[in-house]
Design a protein around this nucleic acid. Structure first.
Lengths: 337, 337
DNA sequence: TTGAAAGCGCTACCAC
DNA sequence: GTGGTAGCGCTTTCAA
């Protein structure tokens, strides 16, 4: 049997109330008693039950993190940052990979509520916002990370995706590209939409068109689909000289497609990714990619949750961080004629 | 206020015991009542509290996963597999990145116990096995994944690391290499030790020596240190023509080192990695790597935990899966004199 | 077939 | 300073 607060109390010849006080450092206990009880807890290797205390004290010291896929390096990095910052304050992290599927989001959200997590960080796209209703009504501190969702009154930490798209476009335009295409994520992913909007507006601002069929969408297996769609784009008679991919996974698919088709990167095709994950540093050629400050985002998200937990009020509604363009070998001037 | 079982009972004009029974599908309830109560729960959008039920029923439906680092793609893949399989059975997953640090392992283990998780999966190295004592005494189902630990009486799911090392060596020997070196992980990581043992024994079996200073160990930032150590190896006057890296991260470091030094891979240097993560498919050149069946391992680990939960007894003590060599572009015949 | 009641381990309030 | 005690929301006998 696990040792409980009763065992400690009995052993010390005091009441459980007293033991509880020394555990929580509350109330007034004589230094003598305190020491004595601490020693007994040590000796009995007593571990207070978070479960029991949560049933009264209200805190489970657990956070939930919803992301599309923990095996996507970008989200793994975010998760690591959230984990570390949470751990700093005594919180554990429950990982929820949603594959951007509403049913999975709904299921996980319900699970997290039943488990009374202290806060939820959402970094996954949601198609039908109604599935968030139960959460909104629940008063569980919630914050959005790396995602935006209009009209939802949730604190949000994200990178300026629009600006990121702009940077990618500018870079490519400066290199002299005129025929640009895009590999997009599922339209339900707001960050992807914004990136493309930034990209497109910049092109249009320079008098360059982005035809609809040059924006290809990928949903599930990003690398695989990215490869497929990139191939389709490259096999047209009139083909793009530059490709903006909404994340590194798609860019890798594109890189593979190019290789298979004998299209040289960056000579025949420039590729720009997004997220600047470890993947971008190891590809052949290394990937030019727009970088997100994952670490700051994770830290910030946790800090905001903890603040909400304390003050019951979210201070800043939005924190928009700046992306940065990392230029590597996958982008260059287009070949002439 | 959250709706509780009392609200439902009151609304239905029955006792909480009855409601509890329909929730858990136990006891005998008239079909009529059952339907009625179900509807009321639905209407009140009642969510049973896992916390409260755990305090009695004993299950938290939460699993803990200890790994070195969630942002290492190999472990992210394992985590994803564990998450999915657990979720299948209603379990959530708490991620614990330990950086292979005993203090972190100890801290997390204690946290997980206080949270009364139903099971713990350990995929991280431990130097001082004593820190596992509290866990061993706790009767929390525990299983080791992708790790071995002698004399610990824990169910284990892993790949045959020794065989993996052998495969790497054989491959390199068959190509004709005679001067081989190794990039190792922290010796506390059993899998790394075994891989090297397999590698070394195979060399010795072919009459080739593996000098001690040609086995370099990396501990923290694997890519960075791998690069550093690889550089050191390559800058010797007498340098290896092949390098076996205990995981893909190290191999990437090696790849970077070679690039910086102008050492052509695979012409001047063959590199073999381990884990066959997504990284291996995107490097330049693509990495020859020993692959682990991450998905099966994760599934198996969860199944074994659930079995222990049910039967209180671990059936099979060890499940050893087979690695597989994926030959890609980073390994080739050594250049002649 | 249903309900009353005794906990699960802990916190917090109020007496002493 | 310290202890008694009423819950927190739920499960589970045991009676009715």
């Amino acid at each position: 049997m696990k040792t409980t607060i009763y065992d400690v109390a009995r052993e010390a010849g005091v009441s459980i109330a007293t033991v509880s006080q020394v555990i929580n450092g509350k109330g007034k206990i004589s230094e003598e008693r305190r020491q004595e009880i601490m020693q007994i807890m040590e000796r009995l290797s007593y571990q207070p039950s978070v479960i029991a205390s949560a049933l009264t004290g209200k805190k489970t010291y657990t956070l939930g993190l919803l992301i599309p896929d923990i095996s996507n390096p970008f989200f793994a990095e975010v998760a690591r940052s959230v984990e570390d910052q949470g751990n700093q304050h005594g919180y554990s992290l429950i990982i929820c990979s949603t594959d951007n599927k509403d049913e999975r989001v709904e299921r996980y959200l319900s699970l997290l509520q039943q488990k009374s997590v202290d806060g939820i960080i959402i970094g996954t796209g949601v198609e039908n916002k109604e599935i968030l209703n139960p959460l909104m009504e629940s008063s569980i501190p919630t914050i959005l990370i790396a995602r935006d969702m209009a009209g939802l009154d949730l604190q949000t930490v994200l990178v300026d995706d629009f600006a990121g798209g702009t940077m990618a476009a500018q870079h490519l335009l400066e290199l002299g590209h005129q025929a640009l295409a895009v590999l997009a994520e599922d339209p339900k992913v707001s960050s992807s939409r914004e990136r493309i909007r930034g990209f497109k507006e910049t092109l249009v601002g320079s008098g360059i068109d982005l035809p609809g069929h040059w924006v290809q969408t990928c949903k599930d297996d990003l690398v695989k689909e990215g490869k497929l769609k990139a191939k389709a784009l490259l096999q047209q008679t009139q083909r793009p000289t530059a490709l903006f991919c909404c994340n590194d996974l798609l860019a890798i698919g594109a890189l593979q497609a190019a290789k298979e088709l004998g299209v040289k990167v960056p000579r025949d095709l420039s590729i720009v990714g997004f997220d600047n994950t470890i993947l971008a540093t190891v590809t052949d050629p290394p990937l030019t990619s727009v970088s997100q400050p994952t670490e700051s985002m994770g830290k910030l998200a946790v800090d905001l949750i903890i603040e909400q937990l304390k003050t019951k009020v979210g201070s800043t509604p939005r924190r928009v961080l700046s992306p940065e363009l990392c230029i590597r070998g996958s982008s260059a001037k287009p070949q002439q004629g």
